[in-house]
């Protein structure tokens, strides 16, 4: 027993991350980070439904405020970039952990079942996490190209830096883009439906009194994120916001 321990001693975070249980902890913690971002991002964007302030769309002001967060205490953009770097790190960790766990799981089942499988508990969401995750990852790239970088052809032809509201209207006036957004939000909802329950398990948050709430929380979160996000492009497409 001692031999096994000594052989494996590595700096604590690395040793921890090396194990699959550790990776699942990382998946869960980064998942929480990403959920918080998704919710904050969504709530922030609801500003498109708000009236203009002095002729400037409120969401444009909001975007400007993000860029100048804590300014003039720190130079402009710095805080935003710190947040962005953190977010990117979290996102990459989430992806890396998922990727290496997937490889591990492939190795653990080199021979697949030849007959059909009947699943009792595993559902569509839990079995497609890696697909819903990957596709959503591509959506994120598209989304950045569309509304952050203004890269053609993802972004509308009229894209202009800083004109958040106008860009928003322009992009979602394109029906295929709106459709793609809504489908992607659906995938995110499915991903969260399993992920938001699963993270309690991975973190070992288990209490007989609250266990029943975990699934309820996951369902509510998934619906909230899906509806909350999907209404924005749909509102544009159907002319409720113009």
């Amino acid at each position: 027993m001692t031999a096994t321990i000594e052989k494996k001693r590595a700096p604590f975070p690395i040793a921890f991350y090396r194990s699959a249980v550790g990776k699942k902890w990382v998946m869960a913690l980064t998942g929480i980070g990403l959920i918080l971002f998704v919710v904050a991002h969504m709530v922030g964007n609801w500003k498109i439904f708000f009236p203009d302030v002095d002729g400037i769309p409120e969401i444009d002001l909001y975007a400007e405020a993000l860029r100048s967060l804590l300014f003039p205490l720190v130079p402009e953009h710095i805080v935003l970039w710190i947040l962005r770097t953190g977010l990117i790190a979290i996102f990459l960790l989430h992806i890396h952990a998922a990727y290496s766990l997937t490889l591990m799981n492939r190795r653990a089942r080199t021979e697949r079942y030849e007959g059909p499988r009947t699943y009792v508990a595993a559902n569509y969401a839990s079995r497609t996490m890696r697909w819903s995750g990957t596709i959503f990852g591509f959506f994120v790239l598209f989304h950045l190209a569309d509304l952050t970088w203004g890269a053609q052809p993802a972004a509308p032809a009229t894209w202009e830096h800083g004109e958040v509201y106008a860009n928003f209207i322009a992009t979602f006036s394109r029906a295929p883009v709106t459709l793609f957004y809504v489908i992607s939000m659906g995938l995110l909802g499915i991903h969260l439906y399993h992920g938001a329950w699963s993270m309690f398990q991975s973190l070992g948050l288990n209490h007989p009194r609250f266990n029943a709430w975990r699934k309820g929380f996951a369902v509510s979160l998934a619906v909230f994120v899906f509806v909350g996000n999907a209404i924005m492009p749909l509102a544009v497409l159907f002319g409720f916001v113009a």
């Binding site: 027993m1 096994t4 321990i5 494996k8 194990s19 699959a20 249980v21 990776k23 699942k24 766990l101 591990m104 799981n105 190795r107 653990a108 089942r109 699943y119 009792v120 508990a121 595993a122 839990s126 079995r127 996490m129 399993h194 329950w197 699963s198 398990q201 991975s202």
Partner: peptide
């Protein structure tokens, strides 16, 4: 610590399917 790490030498990881 030991049992988890030995387990992972042979088997895959839990993704909470509940199966």
């Amino acid at each position: 610590e030991n049992m988890v790490e030995i387990m992972e030498e042979y088997f895959g990881s839990c993704t909470n399917h509940g199966e």
